[in-house]
Design a protein around this nucleic acid. Structure first.
Lengths: 218, 218
DNA sequence: GTCTATAATACGATAGAC
DNA sequence: GTCTATCGTATTATAGAC
């Protein structure tokens, strides 16, 4: 022994976690996202999550106290990413640019993070037992803020009269649909699993729907 | 004994089921719809379904072989109701009337059958293990048929150029959203549980979105 | 930190009396 | 047809060696 009892800063940084701890937690969360988003909370088992993470079940439970803690960690970690596209809407822009780019960001989010979208959808469908608070406070406040921006454009005559909160619902539902209901989309279009070519068609559709005029007056 | 051995037609009709059988199956299916739509297939337990049906668990399993059989019975019974609004679209109508009334029927279906909508959503999210065939055959064929009608209107210059199948996806997602994500809708709008007043606002929004022009060109 | 073994329980399903 | 009792298994979680 060379007589150095000082804890090594590299392995135990002020944050509190060693490198191996962070790596394993990341691996577990990735595996859990696979399984939870595929099967829902009750359909997922610790066995499958552990297997997906190439880890024994007791070892997995060394990092997370129980199944629910993994689920909550995924959900709370997801929320900031989830709100990012909406946060970017700026009051000093114009409706076409701001709403158009918001839709593109949201659709891109569905394309890039379908597992996260399905995890969120499962949670809402189950009655939002873990994120009810978030929905009633943080999300509601953000929606009020952005809806006020849209309402300003309506008052200026730059948009049709409508409830801007429901416009946001329409954007959420149409974009998230391509992640959450991707199985149905592919089956109806006759596409192979993993084929995501429909996202380009979706982008065109949503641009026509939200930014153009869909039906001619005749 | 009065010596009449003939089976009683009232209790054993040609269909094959007695009155009490039909009543109990109906009660079980209603209870199962409550529980499955609230908790998903794996989150639901036979105990809760039996309790909701005011019936013992073994008695419940006298009418259905197992849990999955109840689930399948609900899903298959749902599919015709599910497609009814789409079937009604007529080629000899005009875009505004046909699409407008389709949206109203679909939204009314969400308002009246939110449990069925959530059951369907849970099934799709889980990868459609039981209705994958239906999606690839019956639903796909119906979509092709109705998309052809919409394409005709596009070719006639009565609608903007777009992929009509994706227009149907947009109608499905926006209308079903109010049933499937009702918890989020209520939390964001600050409504009490059970308050469905948002459906009228939704109807206005969807009419503006699909039938009017949302954003002015300026 | 990781493992094997196992405890504890929740749940689907069945047996058998009535 | 309905019940009580119970079996068998899947699954969450822990104990304790290394």
């Amino acid at each position: 022994m060379t007589g150095n009892a000082k804890p090594r800063a590299v392995e135990k940084p002020a944050g509190g976690k060693t490198r191996i701890q962070m790596e394993n937690e990341t691996r577990i969360l990735g595996a859990a996202l696979d399984i939870f988003s595929e099967s829902g909370f009750h359909g997922a088992t610790l066995d499958r999550i552990a297997s997906q993470a190439s880890m024994s079940k007791p070892n997995l439970l060394y990092y997370f106290r129980n199944k629910e803690e993994i689920h909550v960690a995924l959900l709370t970690g997801l929320l900031d990413v989830w709100l990012a596209p909406l946060r970017e809407i700026r009051p000093d822009g114009n409706p076409v640019d701001e709403i158009g780019s918001y839709i593109r960001r949201k659709l891109e989010s569905s394309r890039s993070f379908p597992r996260e979208s399905r995890l969120f959808a499962n949670e809402i469908l189950a009655g939002a037992p873990h994120i009810g608070d978030f929905l009633q406070t943080e999300l509601r406040q953000l929606v009020e803020e952005k809806a006020a921006i849209l309402q300003g454009w309506i008052d200026d005559g730059r948009m049709a009269t409508c409830d801007p909160r429901h416009l946001l619902f329409a954007i959420w539902s149409t974009t998230q649909h391509y992640a959450d209901f991707s199985v149905q989309v592919r089956h109806v279009l006759g596409l192979d699993p993993g084929d995501k070519s429909y996202y380009d068609e979706a982008a065109n559709m949503l641009e026509t729907l939200f930014l153009g005029q869909l039906i001619s007056v005749n």
